[in-house]
Amino acid sequence: MVNANKKKYSSQFKEAAKERDRLDREIKKLIAARIKESYKGSGKKVDKNKFFLTPEAKALAADFKSNRGKLPWPVNEGFVSRKYGEMPSPIDRNVRIYSNGWRFQTPKGASARAVFSGEVDAIVKKPNGILIVYIRHGNYTSVYNNLKSVAVSKGDKVKVYDTIGEVFTNRAGVSELRFILMEDTNTLNPAYWLLKG
Rank of each mutant, 00 (worst) to 15 (best):
R22D: 10
P55V: 12
P88R: 03
V95G: 01
P90M: 08
Q12K: 14
N186Y: 01
Y161C: 02
N67F: 00
K70P: 02
D92R: 04
A114Q: 04
K159W: 09
V2T: 13
S153P: 02
I180N: 03
A32Q: 10
V115G: 00
V143H: 03
A17W: 06
D121Y: 04
N67R: 01
L177I: 10
D156C: 03
A151Y: 01
R96D: 07
K126L: 08
G109N: 14
F64E: 00
Q12L: 15
L147M: 14
A59M: 03
P190D: 05
I97Y: 06
L194Y: 00
I132R: 06
P190C: 06
K7E: 12
T185V: 14
F104I: 06
K159T: 08
N189D: 15
A172L: 08
R178T: 06
A32T: 11
Y140Q: 05
N67A: 01
A4I: 15
E77W: 09
W102L: 12
V158P: 01
K45F: 02
I31N: 03
F179K: 03
N3D: 15
K83R: 07
R171Y: 04
K29T: 15
Y192G: 10
D24F: 10
D24A: 14
I123E: 02
N128A: 12
R96S: 12
A62T: 06
Q12H: 12
D92L: 11
E77V: 09
I91N: 11
F116Q: 00
Y39C: 05
L53M: 13
T141Y: 02
L188V: 01
G43T: 06
G129M: 11
S142N: 09
K48L: 05
E56S: 15
E19V: 09
K50Q: 14
W73G: 03
T141M: 10
M1A: 13
K6Q: 10
V167K: 03
T106L: 01
F79W: 09
V174I: 12
G197W: 11
K154T: 13
R68M: 12
S10W: 01
K6C: 11
T187A: 09
D121S: 13
K159M: 12
R34H: 10
K8Q: 15
Y161G: 03
L188M: 01
T163Q: 07
V133A: 04
S89Y: 02
A114H: 01
G41N: 14
M87R: 13
K45V: 07
I180S: 04
E183Y: 02
L181H: 08
A112Q: 06
G78M: 02
E26H: 08
N94G: 15
S38L: 07
K28N: 11
V160L: 06
W102M: 13
R68P: 01
R82I: 12
E119P: 00
F79L: 09
E15I: 14
P107N: 10
A32D: 09
Y84D: 05
E56K: 15
S42H: 10
T185M: 14
K148I: 00
N76A: 11
Y84F: 15
E15T: 08
S149G: 12
